[in-house]
Nucleic acid binder design. Structure first.
Lengths: 167, 167
DNA sequence: AGCAATTATTACCAATCCGTAAAGTATTAT
DNA sequence: ATAATACTTTACGGATTGGTAATAATTGCT
C-alpha cells in the first residue's frame, strides 16, 4: 500500500498551477523547474492531468497550462484517483489468481469488509480536503510554524509509530 | 495508491492460521486449498509472513505453519507493512527524480505535510485493529448479517462515492 | 512564408511486482 | 535406511510502473 510517484508528483504539479489561479498559466518548463522535475516527466504528468480534466492546455507559442477549476472545488480524492486509479481494484475478484472459479470469500467476506472499509475511510478523508486547503497549509517561507493540521481531524499523534517496524 | 495483492492474500493466509489459534497448525496445501490459491503462491506468502515473524514454521512430515502470537496482539498495521512495506517510502526525497540536489520542498512542504498526515492517519486506523477484530467481524455462514463495523469508527457511509469517479 | 516556442503523442527501456516453476533441505513414519 | 511429506530457496517470465527520448502538431511573431 503505497502512494505512487505519479500521485505525489502529479499533485505537486497541480498545486503549482493552483497557486497561479484560474487566470494564471504555466508552461511545462516552468513547472518542471519549479518542482525539480525533468521537462519530459512534467510533460507526462501534466498530460495526464489534462486528460483527466483537472487542467486545461493551450498550445502554441504563448501556450501553457491552467488549472481547470477553482482550487476550492477540487478535492484530493479526485486528484489521487485521476493519477493512480481507485484504491481498491473494482473487479478484484474477477482477476483472482486462485484455481477456484471465484473468490472463496465472495460474499460476507471479512477481508473484503475490512479492506473496503479502509478504502472508504481513506476516500472520505481525501474527499474532504481540497487543493485550497493544502495551499493554505503551506507556511510562509521562513515562518517558524511547523506541523500541519491537514488530515489530522481527530487523532492526536498520527506519526507516532512506537517502534512497530513502520521503518 | 493501492492495496496490493500480497497484502490482501497475505492477510487471508494469516487469518486462516489465526482461526486455528496458537496451538493449531496448517500445511501450505491446506491454506492454499482453503483460500483458493496455488500451492507455490501460498508458499511464497507464508514464507514472507514467517520471515516477518508473524507465523512460525515446522518442517518435516508433520510440519506446518502456526500463528506466532495471539490474534488479539497482532494489529493490521504490522501485517500490511510486513507484506507491503511502509505507506510512504521513508527515503523518498533521496530517490527524488529531479535534477535538483534535493527535494525542492525539503522542509515546510505542504505536500509532505498532507501525505505524511494521511499516512499517519491510515496507520493509526490499521494499528487499532487486530486480527481478532477481523475474525469477530466474520459473520456465520448463512447468517443474514451484512456490513461491517470494522474501520468505520465515525464516518457513517464510507463507501458512498457520489459518482466522484472512484469507479 | 518561415522561424520559434509550446503542447501532444508515441515509443522505448529499466526497475519493480505478480505469480509460477523447480530443485533443495529437513523431519518422520514405516 | 528409505520413502513420503512438508517447508526453503532460487530463479524465471509476464505485467505494470517510473522515467526518458524523439517526433509531430499547433500557435504566434516577424
Amino acid at each position: 500500500m503505497r502512494i505512487s510517484a505519479l500521485e505525489e508528483y502529479g499533485l505537486r504539479c497541480l498545486l503549482a498551477l493552483a497557486r497561479r489561479g484560474r487566470e494564471g498559466q504555466m508552461s511545462i518548463s516552468e513547472v518542471a523547474e519549479q518542482e525539480g522535475l525533468s521537462v519530459p516527466y512534467a510533460s507526462k504528468l501534466l498530460s495526464i492531468l489534462r486528460k483527466e480534466g483537472l487542467v486545461t492546455a493551450e498550445r502554441g507559442r504563448t501556450g501553457g497550462f491552467t488549472i481547470a477549476r477553482a482550487p476550492e472545488s477540487i478535492n484530493l480524492l479526485e486528484v489521487i484517483t485521476a493519477l493512480g486509479g481507485p484504491l481498491i481494484d473494482p473487479n478484484h475478484c474477477e482477476k483472482f489468481t486462485g484455481q477456484l472459479d471465484r473468490c472463496v470469500h465472495e460474499d460476507q467476506c471479512s477481508v473484503h469488509n475490512v479492506l473496503d472499509g479502509l478504502a472508504g475511510f481513506i476516500s472520505e478523508q481525501l474527499r474532504t480536503r481540497t487543493l485550497q486547503d493544502v495551499l493554505d497549509d503551506q507556511p510562509e517561507i521562513g515562518s517558524g510554524l511547523s506541523g500541519s493540521s491537514i488530515l489530522l481531524t481527530e487523532q492526536s499523534e498520527p506519526q507516532e509509530t512506537r517502534g512497530e517496524n513502520l521503518q
